[in-house]
């Protein structure tokens, strides 16, 4: 399908089918604002793909391809290789086209993980953006490697039993930021749906820097997190203010920017707005999990030097 030429600089148009208040859509829109016109995007299967491209319509105004759930990174590598080839064979303009791959946390932390590692290893100048809803939103909020401790999802449901399963998810969230850094990426950043301008700026920066870049954005999922449609941005901010999901920016492996915390907000303030953590407020065991989550936030504050 031919996309409408971009006149208004908005690369993702209204009329998509996402839920009202979708944190991923807010973030994707902010991301496209940092992309400029001269890009090709490879998108993994997931909410962002499904809600924007019901055949024969498309909300995208840049060249955009969706192949499979797990291979957006390798598709992007192929695009990059083709552009390199064209650049050397009479199509000089191909050299300036930026390549972006993007997907949800499932497509990034889990099923697409190996292919992303392969792409990073090759050192190609490709930006990968992960929209982290902390679960497989598109298929009904099953747990992924990005699901945080004690979140209730449809495959880690909170329960009434005595064993650990009852608390919801009881695996720690995979640390993709460290994994990205371990690949020697020149640019690694984290943001949240609470800060669209930060997202836009980071995408711009990532595209300026040569080499592979990774940006991970916390994007609240309205039905998945069982939150009010008006709360996506608020949750994005609380994630930062609690230290659970700080804004981060690494250049050449060095932390150059992080969101400083003036007055620490307790994790309860973040958790209590979300149905996926509701069970924690009902039992003594749940309270213990909240304490543990507070500990995770405090560790982040130290690790990322968030204290003012």
């Amino acid at each position: 399908m031919k996309n409408k030429k971009n006149k208004d600089k908005v690369l993702i148009s209204p009329g998509h089918r996402a839920c009202a208040g979708c944190g991923q859509m807010i973030s994707a829109k902010a991301a496209t604002e940092g992309m400029g016109n001269n890009v090709i995007v490879a998108n993994a299967t997931g909410c962002l793909e499904v809600t924007t491209t019901p055949y024969p319509q498309s909300a995208w105004k840049m060249p955009w391809i969706h192949s499979l759930f797990e291979n957006a990174s390798a598709i992007a590598s192929g695009i990059k290789a083709a552009l390199n080839y064209k650049g050397k064979h009479g199509e000089g303009r191909a050299k300036n086209i930026k390549v972006i791959a993007q997907g949800g946390d499932g497509g990034t932390f889990d099923i697409g993980f190996g292919l992303i590692s392969g792409m990073w290893e090759r050192g190609e100048d490709i930006l990968y953006i992960c929209y982290d809803t902390e679960a497989y939103s598109n298929t009904g909020v099953q747990a992924s490697g990005a699901t945080p401790w004690a979140a209730s999802t449809t495959t880690t449901p909170a329960g009434t039993g005595k064993n650990i399963d009852a608390i919801g998810s009881h695996q720690n969230k995979k640390d993709m930021i460290s994994i990205a850094l371990a690949h020697g990426l020149p640019y690694v950043a984290q943001s949240t749906a609470g800060y669209p301008m930060d997202i836009t700026a980071k995408v711009k920066k990532a595209l300026e820097i040569k080499g592979p870049a990774y940006i991970q954005i916390m994007t609240p999922c309205i039905p998945g997190w069982k939150v009010k449609p008006s709360d996506a941005m608020k949750l994005g901010k609380l994630g930062v203010e609690t230290g659970l999901y700080p804004l981060l920016e690494y250049i050449d492996g060095k932390l150059v920017n992080s969101s400083k915390i003036d007055k620490k907000v307790k994790v309860e303030e973040y958790l209590k707005l979300q149905g996926r953590f509701k069970h924690l407020f009902k039992t003594a065991r749940g309270k213990k999990q909240i304490e543990y989550i507070q500990k995770l936030a405090d560790e982040n504050i130290k690790k990322y030097e968030l204290k003012k």
Partner: peptide, 19 residues
């Protein structure tokens, strides 16, 4: 392009062909 699996190799040539 050196791929890290056949799954990637096929995806890489797919992306290139689409370009």
């Amino acid at each position: 392009v050196r791929a890290e699996s056949e799954f990637a190799a096929a995806s890489i040539v797919e992306g290139a062909s689409a370009t």
